[in-house]
């Protein structure tokens, strides 16, 4: 019964977040914010620990595995875009990923954030299933990485709009790539609001960033 309770509460909080967002459409009504806040409040009120909560709901997290397979579909649908711009996209993905990891490393060094916390922060700039995999490879804490990934999505999508006005970006390709690289899933949703091409580019970049990083992670972990 207890096992069902937390799973049901999680699904209900997510459903509620989605409906609220459709009604109000504010940045703070995103289900990505509302659902965790509701669940944290409930867990605190019931004096439930994370260990007990995740024991009942880890089956949901396990579904991120097959979700990775599902990413094959957007990649396949954008194969014309890959054929046309593979070199530019690959260069941007590599440069963006190196910037993400190196800047987190450097800033953590300055601010004195170290150990597993720093390692969990490094893969924050990719879609969650990939980020959690890379975090495990690095010796970080995958669930903490999920938290940082959510924060990155929210921060990135808000900063993205501002940056696209300031940066010298003219092409749809660059606009889509900036949002897909900097703010993964939330950025992709934002990019779809800009235009169909921006949305497609952002979605493709997000998946490719994940794949490239997951493939490179064992090597980077060995260097760390």
């Amino acid at each position: 019964m207890q096992a069902l309770f937390w799973s049901a509460a999680t699904i209900a909080a997510y459903g509620l977040g989605k409906r609220l967002d459709r009604r109000l459409r504010q940045w703070w009504t995103a289900p990505m914010i509302v659902a965790p806040v509701l669940l944290i409040a409930l867990a605190l009120a019931l004096h439930e620990s994370y260990g007990a909560y995740i024991r009942d709901t880890h089956w949901l997290v396990a579904l991120l595995g097959p979700a990775m397979v599902a990413f094959a579909i957007p990649v396949w649908e954008q194969r014309a875009l890959i054929r046309r711009h593979w070199l530019v996209l690959l260069a941007a993905i590599l440069a963006g990923s190196v910037t993400a990891m190196a800047s987190v490393w450097g800033l953590s060094e300055i601010l004195g954030v170290d150990g597993a916390l720093r390692l969990s922060l490094m893969p924050r700039s990719m879609s969650t299933p990939f980020a959690m995999t890379v975090s495990a490879d690095f010796g970080g804490i995958p669930s903490l990485t999920a938290v940082f990934t959510v924060v990155t999505g929210i921060v990135g999508a808000s900063l993205g709009g501002l940056l696209l006005r300031v940066l010298p970006v003219r092409s749809n390709l660059a606009r889509g790539a900036v949002l897909g690289m900097g703010a993964h899933g939330v950025g992709v949703a934002r990019a779809h609001g800009l235009g169909r091409e921006e949305g497609s580019v952002a979605g493709l970049v997000m998946v490719l960033v994940g794949v490239v990083n997951v493939l490179a992670a064992p090597l980077v972990a060995w260097l760390l």
Partner: peptide
Amino acid sequence: KIVAIIGVSTVLVMAVTALVIEWGL
């Protein structure tokens, strides 16, 4: 501190991505 790291790092990532794509094109 962590939100600050994420914010600064995200700005850098976005700027680098934009510049690489624009130069590449």
